[in-house]
């Protein structure tokens, strides 16, 4: 059992700016599975990801990590990591961007950890390049390395390939599969159904702030349980 998993959401609701974004969501995240959160724009996918990552406290309901620990505690951030749609690169080298994600800054061991992470994403050759001069796909790989360097138990991905080209998308997908292979639990939001099919073990489908179903991926794509899920897949197939 990890520090974070199993992660338990009980009856979680979230209001943002007077708008109900999440409604009564209950969800259990076990270990070593890849979960894709699907749904139309505005369904609350990204908000759910942020609640699970401890970035947004729920308005009501409870989010509990393993042993009932509070997910909002700062030390919980040592056990998960998140990749955003647009990689946020600090104004420094690729390697320093990776090292920035580690707790102890610029000691010999963190340099070694950073280099290992960059090698894993195939970016070691560009380690000394200023991160902002890299291409969008390269930046996302550096961001991936920054997440991996923290040895996260859970990796959250918020549309990680939405703003990069097909070749970079393939590379990122390979990295996701590789991370899942090595035992990292992946939770990803995506609009790319093919990508979800390729990568996900489970699908969580959201509609207007509600979780309408949680099904194994092959089952979701052949026989979605909820009416909303069926409609969504219908829309995608046109």
């Amino acid at each position: 059992m990890g520090k974070l998993l199993p992660l338990e959401l009980k009856d979680v609701s979230l209001d943002l700016g007077g708008k109900s974004v999440l409604r009564n969501i209950s969800l259990r995240l076990g270990s070593a599975r890849t979960l894709a959160i699907l749904g139309a724009n505005g369904a609350g996918k990204t908000a759910l990801l942020r609640v699970m990552h401890g970035m947004l406290p729920p308005t009501s309901g409870a989010v509990r990590a393993a042993n009932g620990l509070d997910l909002q505690l700062p030390e919980m951030r040592k056990h998960d990591a998140m990749l955003f749609q647009r990689p946020v690169m600090l104004r420094r080298s690729a390697l320093d961007n990776v090292i920035f994600g580690l707790d102890a800054d610029s000691t010999q061991s963190s340099v070694a950890i950073g280099e290992r992470a960059l090698r894993r994403v195939g970016m070691l050759g560009l380690a000394d390049r200023p991160a902002r001069t890299l291409s969008g796909g390269e930046q996302q790989r550096v961001a991936f390395a920054r997440a991996l360097a923290r040895s996260p138990e859970v990796l959250y991905l918020d549309e990680p390939t939405a703003s990069i080209d097909p070749q970079s998308t393939r590379q990122i997908e390979a990295l996701i599969a590789d991370a899942a292979e090595s035992g990292v639990t992946v939770v990803m939001v995506t609009h790319n159904l093919a990508q979800a099919k390729r990568l996900a073990d489970d699908i969580a489908f959201m509609h207007e702030g509600r979780l309408t179903e949680r099904t194994p991926a092959d089952e979701f794509f052949s026989r979605p349980q909820s009416a909303e899920g069926r409609e969504y897949l219908l829309g995608e197939s046109i």
């Binding site: 990552h53 970035m55 700062p74 030390e75 951030r77 040592k78 990591a81 998140m82 955003f84 946020v88 600090l90 104004r91 420094r92 920035f100 994600g101 923290r150």
Partner: peptide, 26 residues
Amino acid sequence: NNYREQFQSLGVHGWRASATLVWDTR
């Protein structure tokens, strides 16, 4: 505004966040 979510995700806050912002906007 650009960094906030990334910092939150990395658990970077307070003095370290300010120093990084000053350095990056130098």
